[in-house]
Design a protein around this nucleic acid. Structure first.
Lengths: 347, 347
DNA sequence: TTGTAGGCGTTATCAG
DNA sequence: CTGATAACGCCTACAA
């Protein structure tokens, strides 16, 4: 690889002139500029990001620490992050935390050395041990799907409370009174919020929260399967299931079918997420849509603002969610012909 | 951030002694080492990856250039890549190419400056303009899901020919003679291979390849939907559909249902990929499983070998595929009880 | 066994 | 307008 010196030599000048030409800093005579640019082209010169990073203390890299990559919600979020980063000339370093605070900590420590200009930490645990590290970070950190104690660390979350209470209110309106709730682990911010909202919504309707209708899974399909089997085997089983995650809901639906229950006739199911595949479940899943892509892109915009030293207008963003009603919760009144178009949502 | 000098000062020594202590290079007296380590701990010192990268010409970073992130096949592949990279102490820079050779080129050029030690280029086009750049790259490049002309650039692909011909042979065995083929774009390596294999397999069975039963989509669900609608509207429509991608197959199945065809009774469907959701389609999709995660991890191992300067045992890997038979191709003979377990594959 | 000097490729400063 | 010089933080000779 040619260096700036090679270019300077070929153009008959000094390295700093090349630098000034390329970066538009300082004054460079037009003729000089042209000679320099010609030399650059001839050599195929490209400044070394490493050397520049060392000098400037800026790398144009951001790091993303995220539980998994291939989970639909997270992979969409990653796409939103990548999009904004790339558009702003930043590169993305991808780190999988597997929801393990130790790994989060390792990465957070790794990145204290200036190799990245900012960090997005996705889905930290409630009381995550790494929050101390986050507070002491040498670069801006934005939290996604979680909040650190206090108001200091900027965050983007979805409106879990609203989503969960809408789901519950909707099921109540349909006449359900025994509503099972398959939640994610309470160590996860989203799950905790949803838990509170569900209790609240039930309480307001005068329906007592029944612990026997509550189970926690771990967001996997198999945990949803197991949870549904369990909950449907208990006495006084529910007539509806609210599942905090579409992948778990998929497992739950499978369990219901395997146990011989019809959806929604015997049991209504409402999920959370609205992953791409939710509308193609059988029956299509009623679920609370959360804008994963936008969560990612907004968080990245916040991070980039912080990196540029711009103040944030709002430190904590709560993204809107929306209940999407499909066949898993209401008996179909549609004819075959109507389904044809109704099922063909989006691309 | 403290530098190596700060540590040296605190420990009462020279920077190089700190370096030697930390890297195990040269001789360091035990007492000195201890003093150094104590100072390191006290200051929370961590070597700067940037400075080290500049000095050593090695960054422990690899770049991945891949069409999309949230497509199931690709996101699994990314996970395989991330896994191996992390385990070997490398970090992953994620770049989305959107199948655009221009973007591939931009990235390939960007990375010539030494900021990464190696590059994985996923799903390049056949005759991709960036192959020239790949050949001239300053760091090792491994191709995934594609091959450059000649034998020079290492690659990992799946056995598309075997997969496609098994699918076709299977449909022929079931008695199908008019087999529609919804393929991906022929600019994609996989699609091209599958195309040849399908022609071959039909030819060997004495069934002529009928162009009216062939359509290309772009791997999206909507393109599968449109393609199936189109192909099923033509005269002498097929009794079976082989679809080169499960997401497209999902769209195709939707189209078939909307048109009133029963699967598999009126039309059998066989996909390619075996994405996680394929087994939960209605009916569950018969498809050719490709090991996306392993493709990613193997490619990364190859790349890391090249980076370490180790010779490759084999420059070109072809990963095995496997036809997975489910309900979309054969009329169910199972009772409800049997389905229960058969549908509950994997997690 | 330890320390000194130089350089990796840039860019900022400041003198010419 | 241009160029010499120093510095970013680290590592590797080589000298002490």
């Amino acid at each position: 690889m040619p260096t700036i010196k090679d270019v300077a030599r070929l153009a008959g000048g000094a390295p700093c002139t090349v630098s000034n030409t390329l970066n538009g800093t300082g004054y460079v005579a037009k003729t000089t500029r042209e000679r320099v640019l010609a030399a650059v082209r001839e050599l195929g010169y490209q400044p070394s990001a490493i050397a520049r990073g060392l000098k400037l203390g800026r790398t144009n890299m951001i790091a993303l620490i995220i539980p998994t990559i291939s989970t639909p919600m997270f992979s969409e979020m990653i796409e939103g992050i990548e999009e904004v980063a790339t558009a702003t000339n930043y590169n993305l370093i991808l780190c999988r935390s597997a929801r393990d605070p130790k790994r989060e900590l390792t990465y957070l420590n790794l990145f204290r050395d200036g190799r990245v200009d900012g960090i997005i930490l996705a889905a930290p645990k409630v009381d995550d041990p790494c929050f101390a590290e986050v507070a002491a970070a040498t670069v801006p950190v934005v939290l996604v799907g979680g909040k650190a104690p206090g108001e200091d660390v900027p965050s983007v979350v979805v409106d879990n409370r609203r989503g969960a209470s809408e789901a519950i209110r909707y099921l109540l309106e349909l006449g359900h009174r025994r509503i099972g709730f398959i939640n994610g682990p309470l160590t996860v911010f989203d799950s905790r919020e949803r838990f509170k909202a569900v209790k609240d919504a039930l309480g307001k309707a005068g329906v007592p929260f029944d612990e026997h209708l509550y189970i926690e899974g771990d967001f996997t399909r198999s945990s949803g399967y197991a949870a549904a089997r369990e909950i449907m085997s208990r006495p006084a089983r529910p007539t509806a299931l609210f599942v905090g995650g579409d992948t778990m809901a998929m497992g739950a639906m499978q369990a219901l079918k395997d146990m011989g229950f019809r959806i929604p006739d015997d049991v209504a199911v409402v999920g959370f997420d609205d992953i791409k595949y939710a509308q193609y479940f059988e029956p299509p899943l009623t679920t609370v849509r959360q804008p994963a892509y936008q969560v990612g892109s907004r968080a990245t915009k916040m991070l980039l603002s912080l990196i540029e030293g711009k103040p944030l207008r709002r430190k904590h963003l709560v993204m809107d969610v929306k209940l999407v009603i499909r066949g898993s919760s209401e008996r179909r009144r549609q004819t075959r012909g109507e389904r044809r178009t109704s099922q063909h949502e989006g691309k």
